[in-house]
């Protein structure tokens, strides 16, 4: 700004200092700067920006894919869980049904067995009672004859005694049936 200019003070356009050599030097300077920057900076920085945006894009896609997979897995797990729950409920219901059936079967069997035991016991009791009655009846007849002998002070022969016993038994049976 201060001091003498490059060119002699000129008037008009000459005062601007247009110089072909300087112009060429600026052109070369700019071209060299542009080329160096292109290979040293622009290419690498834009490459880095591209790779970073590509990485971000891939990461977003990956995240999206993982999210979808996660959702699918969750759905699958939920489905498996539901299926398992349904299966469990079904098995439980079947087990309950089987247990109920088994319980009824066992109860039925126990009832049949008890009825059988009671019936057998009744039969045995009846047989025991019949035998006891028969024995008592025989004893009673002997006692009766013996008593009668003693009462009437006479003895009867064997055939008459047997007839008498039968008669007493018959009467006794008739009386018992009447009871």
């Amino acid at each position: 700004m201060l001091g003498a200019p490059l060119l002699e003070e000129a008037s008009g356009i000459g005062a601007l200092g247009i110089d072909l050599t300087s112009l060429l030097v600026y052109l070369i300077n700019f071209t060299v700067l542009g080329l160096i920057l292109y290979f040293m900076a622009y290419k690498r920085i834009i490459g880095m920006l591209d790779s970073r945006s590509e990485r971000i894009r891939e990461s977003l896609e990956e995240a999206d894919r993982v999210r979808k997979e996660s959702e699918e897995q969750q759905e699958s797990m939920q489905k498996a869980l539901d299926d398992g729950r349904q299966e469990g409920q079904r098995v439980l219901a079947e087990a309950r049904e089987a247990a109920e059936r088994y319980r009824e079967q066992q109860a039925e069997q126990a009832r049949a067995e008890s009825e059988q035991i009671v019936s057998r016991a009744r039969e045995e009791i009846k047989q025991e009672r019949d035998a006891a009655l028969e024995s008592v009846r025989a004893e009673f007849a002997v006692l009766a004859v013996s008593a009668a002998e003693k009462i009437i002070k006479r003895s009867l022969d064997a055939d008459a005694q047997q007839d008498l016993i039968d008669e007493v038994i018959s009467e006794s049976n008739a009386k018992q049936e009447q009871d």
Partner: peptide, 29 residues
Amino acid sequence: PEVHLAPQEVFTVGSFVITNTLLSAWLTT
């Protein structure tokens, strides 16, 4: 201050004049 439109000569290399603006351009580069 004296206002000059043209650049100023700093030194010369042969017939080529190195101006202060050219030096500045190289420094900037």
